[in-house]
Design a binder for these strands. Structure first.
Length: 484
RNA sequence: GGCCCCAUAGUCUAGCGGUUAGGACGUCGGCCUCUCACGCCGAAAUCUCGGGUUCAAUUCCCGAUGGGGUCACCA
């Protein structure tokens, strides 16, 4: 069966692979398969300062681990290659020229200082719809051309209509209409010559013949900009379906400060990709027949947008864990064994752990107990508050240090002892602590012990996500500790 | 704050005018059992509120409230 359904997942390679990406990817994938269409992967790396090839590789690897194979993408190519936006800049530049010629976009020469000042004034005056004041919109085209020719730094903005509404049909929510007056003259082309999401997204979706844009709810408010762009180009817009955002237990949008969000965390903590996918399939969707445990093919078979809800589901780790257990129990012993081997009982992983314990054990039987923290998600025996607090420090200060360290560590890339040690030293010294103090707290937080193999080797092997999770747990233990 | 989206137990969901409001996680109790887990049985716990529409609203409409998103040269 072939069809015109073409959908995409379009991650931005600016960090760790996010479960939200897997969530949206799942629904795109299922919808494509349900309709005999194509599912593509496009890398949105138009932010030159934040994008990295490292992150892109991690995202591709994570999506592959989870098992959602794309039909076209940067790694496998396809009829509309390239699938990396940084390699499509010519396309965006000619699109911009087109837009300017049609009067739908205009160059803007405003400086950052002016924009900052404007924003500050609007904030102070409590303007209801703050945004760019369209100062450059009235510059005569010839003047603008001359200034550009003279090499003046500029961006290109969308000339949004000032009145009326922009309406669109959302596949999940029905008709949505937004007052044009509340929408800013978005920057489409940055001063570095790269497009913003809004431009690149529309241009690529059109050229890649995307039929349905299935993305997160966070995009609803900028959809009118996209609609206006399609209109300006004279293109038929795709169908829009905005899925609800996955939520933290407190209902806010899922965030790494409150919940593990990296797909790698779930892998390292011992979750199975099929269970994760099944769990995500239960978020905002149900087959409608009380089946909660189902495979992706079963989901495809029963899929329909009428079964998708627009309510923001809380990502409940306890429920995921239960589901994961059901998958494990349903395996044959051989299957479980091989899954354990794929996970951390592989020669490859053991070869990383073993050298760290080699000189520290005197009998073979000491290996497993001495290495336990390499093989657990959360520590089996979480440390006591007292063990975490360095002499002369208190619980609050230590909690704060660890919590801040978690944030600092987020930026460490790649995750290796070579990068970790200087990062931790710099952090420690910057806050006036002795490395001896914080490193011990770190060790206890990560391994649950005061004696361990070298700290940074250990952290490297345990991995970023598990380390950060344990650090955060330790900070919580300290915060919950009774005050003297 | 402006604009937009959403609203069934603590959580994920079924329901699509008339139901003892169904299932699952979690919680609590019991059975099974050398222990634990699994499994099985059971319990507590839900339609945010106020107006309409209707013979009848959890269900349809409006409003309030609550939650969320968004207001970047980030996506």
């Amino acid at each position: 069966m072939s069809s015109d359904v073409r959908v995409r997942i379009a991650p931005s390679p600016t960090g760790d692979p996010h479960v939200g990406t897997a969530y949206i990817a799942l629904f795109n994938y299922v919808f494509a398969r349900r309709n005999g269409g194509k599912f593509l992967l496009r890398i949105e790396d138009t932010d030159r300062t934040r994008s990295s090839l490292d992150s892109e590789a991690a995202i591709l690897r994570a999506l592959r681990w989870v098992g959602l194979q794309w039909d076209e993408g940067p790694d496998i190519g396809g009829p509309y290659a390239p699938y990396r936006q940084s390699e499509r800049t010519d396309l965006y530049r000619s699109a911009i020229a087109d837009l300017i010629a049609r009067g739908a976009a205009y160059p803007c020469f405003c400086t950052e200082e002016r924009l900052d000042k404007l924003k500050a004034e609007q904030r102070a005056a409590k303007v209801p719809n703050p945004g760019y004041d369209r100062f450059c919109r009235t510059i005569a085209p010839d003047d603008a051309k001359a200034r550009i020719a003279a090499g003046e730094k500029h961006v290109v903005r969308l000339a949004m209509p000032r009145d009326g509404f922009t309406r669109f049909h959302d596949g999940l929510r029905g008709e949505v209409e937004i007052h044009n007056s509340t929408i800013d003259d978005q920057v489409l082309l940055k001063s570095d010559g790269f497009p913003t999401y809004h431009l690149a997204n529309v241009v690529d979706d059109h050229h890649m013949k995307i039929s349905h844009v299935i993305r997160g709810e966070e995009w609803i408010s900028s959809t009118p900009k996209h609609i206006q762009l399609y209109k300006a180009f004279g293109w038929e817009p795709p169908k829009f379906i905005h899925m609800s955002l996955l939520r933290n237990p407190d209902k806010s949008k899922l965030s790494k400060r409150k919940n593990p969000v990296s797909i790698d965390f779930y892998r390292d903590a011992g979750f199975l990709p099929e269970a994760l996918l099944n769990f995500l399939g239960n978020m905002g969707f149900s087959l409608g027949d009380n089946r909660e445990k189902f495979t992706v093919p079963e989901m495809i078979e029963g899929f329909d947008w009428s079964k998708v809800s627009a309510t923001g589901p809380v990502f409940d780790l306890a429920k995921l864990t239960d589901l994961n257990g059901q998958y494990i129990r349903a395996m044959t012993p051989e299957q479980l064994l091989s899954r354990l081997r794929e996970w951390r009982l592989s020669d490859e992983f053991l070869r990383r752990v073993m050298p760290l314990l080699h000189q520290r054990i005197e009998r073979l039987d000491q290996f497993v107990p001495a290495a336990d923290f390499f093989f657990t998600g959360d520590l089996t025996a979480p440390p006591a508050a007292a063990a975490l607090i360095p002499k002369g420090r208190d619980a609050d200060a230590t909690a704060k240090a660890l919590a801040e360290l978690v944030e600092a560590l987020d930026a460490v890339r790649p995750w290796s002892k070579e990068t970790l040690e200087p990062a931790c030293r710099t952090f420690t010294e910057a806050r006036g602590w002795k490395t001896k103090e914080l490193f011990m707290a770190l060790r206890v937080a990560v391994t649950g012990r005061t004696a361990s193999p070298p700290l940074f080797d250990t952290m490297e092997v345990i991995g970023k996500d598990l380390c950060r999770r344990r650090l955060r747990s330790a900070a919580e233990i300290l915060r919950a500790a009774p005050r003297p």
